[in-house]
Write a protein that binds this DNA or RNA. Structure first.
Lengths: 235, 235
DNA sequence: CATCCGAGGTGTACGACGTACACCTTTTAT
DNA sequence: ATAAAAGGTGTACGTCGTACACCTCGGATG
């Protein structure tokens, strides 16, 4: 005999998606399995398939859930600040949900929600007077930066292990020596980034700063292309 | 009684990695499972673990195998053409192995081989006179472009299904109408890219061109930052 | 009222996957 | 000849996504 019916609000697509986002936030994206998520919802795994087509659809939906809340670029002052603000808002979303970057990267479908976001950003450029052609190239150049992240080829790998133990200075010095001999350029770059202060070695760099640096570099370059071609060339 | 001993060259790490690359080239990255790869090598799955630590290590190794063959930037004429040539060579590698992009994106370790490539590229900038600081930002800005691809947020999704059937023009026109109403900016951009010729709708855009456009845009911007700061600022 | 239906939930089962562990065999070095 | 290392085997476990057949309600409809 079942316990006193603990009334369970029935699962719905949006409830499932929100639960999945919460689960990913709390325990990481690997914890988001159909079985695990179903458990959270007090339901058997297969029940989820009444609300999502399959796991891909679940992940698409999770992205949609978050992307739908992004602000649209404000029409007005100019395309550059509008695009900048929109992209930085997307970045806040990425920072708030660390698993989101990888999930977006792995998406293969373009959902209407995602298309809407892309359209409103492209629309900002067009409204600002950029030609459709230039807007096209601009969107390509921005790439995933549209979503608030750039592909961080140069980044320190995420270290899931507990923070590196302090390690005595002598050992560190020897390591740096070795690095410097093997990878002179990278070492020079790294040392410059921490002002030569070896105690700051584990810090990693200021991603936000790097992101905005690259973003502004690109926006400025776009502006140069745009104004440089007004009336004379066909971009 | 076993068949006449068909002499099998013993598996080695590099043989396993090369076989894995071939397998991925031939059947896609999903076909690269420990079991499948072992089968190809005429060996039981667990035998692979004598040569790779685990699957992540296998994937790392596959990347290394290819990255090791990349040319280093030539010292000489200037950092810009040197970096450009190196990055475009990496791009050729990516194009030749379509699975490689995703695998590189998913790597979490930086192997010595990969560090060596990054170091030689960073070294080109430094040899060209860019400060360590500027080189740092430059590497970040290039992001995955270092590896010959940019994150294609704006790309058509890869369509694994057979090419879209020709679809009669009337239907296409209606679809475009609908798209244009729902996503005006994207539609304008897309139509511009195909010169309004609806028969070219499925084409997708010239990725190589977009890649080089973005690459050159960035390299030019770096140059402007560099020469603009010579002797006056500390970048 | 009786009936039906469809939306939501269940239970079982299958075929992958990565890999731990204990064991065997072959090659090589001494 | 012998010992040890290097390479290969076989079994087993836990996890995953999901196909398929079934059940169970709460209305809507005759």
């Amino acid at each position: 005999m079942p316990l006193a019916t603990q009334e369970r609000t029935p699962v719905s697509r949006s409830r499932a998606l929100r639960a999945a986002v919460e689960l990913a936030d709390a325990e990481g994206i690997d914890a988001v399995s159909m079985r695990n998520l179903a458990g959270r919802l007090g339901v058997v795994p297969m029940a989820l398939y009444k609300h999502v087509a399959n796991k891909e659809d679940l992940l698409d939906g999770m992205v949609d859930t978050l992307v739908a809340d992004l602000p649209r670029p404000e029409p007005g002052p100019g395309w550059k600040p509008a695009a900048r603000a929109t992209i930085l808002a997307a970045r806040e979303m990425i920072v708030a949900h660390p698993w989101l970057r990888r999930v977006i990267e792995s998406r293969t479908r373009r959902t209407p929600t995602v298309l809407t976001h892309m359209d409103s950003l492209a629309g900002a450029f067009i409204a600002g007077g950029l030609s459709a052609d230039l807007t096209h190239h601009v969107m390509h150049t921005l790439g995933h930066r549209i979503w608030g992240f750039s592909p961080e080829a140069f980044d320190a790998p995420e270290e899931p292990d507990d923070a590196t133990p302090p390690a005595d200075p002598q050992e560190v010095a020897a390591m740096v020596e070795h690095m410097s001999a093997t990878y002179p350029a990278i070492t020079a770059v790294t040392l410059a980034a921490i002002d030569g202060d070896l105690s700051r070695l584990g810090e990693g760099c200021d991603e936000q700063w790097e992101f905005e640096f690259a973003l502004d570099l690109l926006l400025d370059a776009f502006e140069r292309l745009h104004t440089g071609s007004r009336g004379s060339r066909n971009t």
